Simulated assay, not measured.
Amino acid sequence: MNIAFFLVPKEEVIYLSPNHTIRQALERMEYHRFSAVPLIDEDGRYAGTITEGDLLWKLKRSPEIGFENAHKVRLSDVPQHWCIKPVRIDQQVQDLITLAVNQNYVPVIDDNEVFIGIIRRREIIEYCFKLWQSEQKLSEQKA
């Protein structure tokens, strides 16, 4: 099976640029109720994932910023505490599952490392559950 089966295309993904500000990130995360979003640079390449924790740690460790100045700090100046690794679109499903065990989503890149979307752990679990259910029904029919 190709991992593209699970792909949520870039057009449907909420993402930010490293040039966005802390305030913009917080507002977008709050609006969409996400705790993490991918960062995509000006060349369309995956540049990491920014999390609520990253933003909070930056604000905590930089009291001079405060929320009132969060619009002045770029996400490129916020350290990322989690390394959310991408998978290439041509990689095996096993590679995807290995990453999805520890990540809520897996960014997907093409041969040129350009971001093309994400694969959410939820869809992988739902797919596996449906396979399991099908196997259970076959077992019941044979019995």
Rank of each mutant, 00 (worst) to 15 (best):
I109Q: 06
Y127L: 00
C128M: 13
I97C: 07
D111S: 15
I125H: 07
I109H: 06
R121T: 06
R122F: 06
V73A: 09
N104M: 12
T98H: 06
V101G: 01
I119C: 07
I109F: 07
Q92W: 00
H71R: 10
K130Q: 10
P86F: 00
I65M: 10
F115W: 01
N69Q: 08
I97F: 04
F115E: 06
R120A: 14
I124M: 03
K85I: 12
P63L: 01
C128K: 03
P79E: 01
Q91D: 15
S76M: 02
I118T: 06
D77S: 10
D90N: 15
D77K: 13
K130L: 06
D77N: 12
V87R: 01
D90I: 08
D90G: 14
P63S: 05
I65S: 09
E113G: 12
N112I: 11
N102T: 14
C128R: 06
V114P: 04
P63W: 00
F67N: 11
S76I: 07
C83F: 08
Q94I: 14
V73R: 02
N69D: 06
I97P: 03
I125Q: 02
H71K: 09
I118F: 00
E68R: 12
L96S: 04
P107H: 02
I84L: 09
I109D: 08
N102Y: 09
E126L: 10
W82D: 15
P107L: 10
P86A: 12
Q80L: 05
E64V: 05
R120W: 09
R120C: 11
H81Q: 11
V108T: 09
Q92D: 14
V106N: 07
F129W: 14
V106W: 04
H71I: 05
A70H: 05
N69V: 00
T98S: 11
P86T: 14
V108P: 06
L96T: 01
D111G: 14
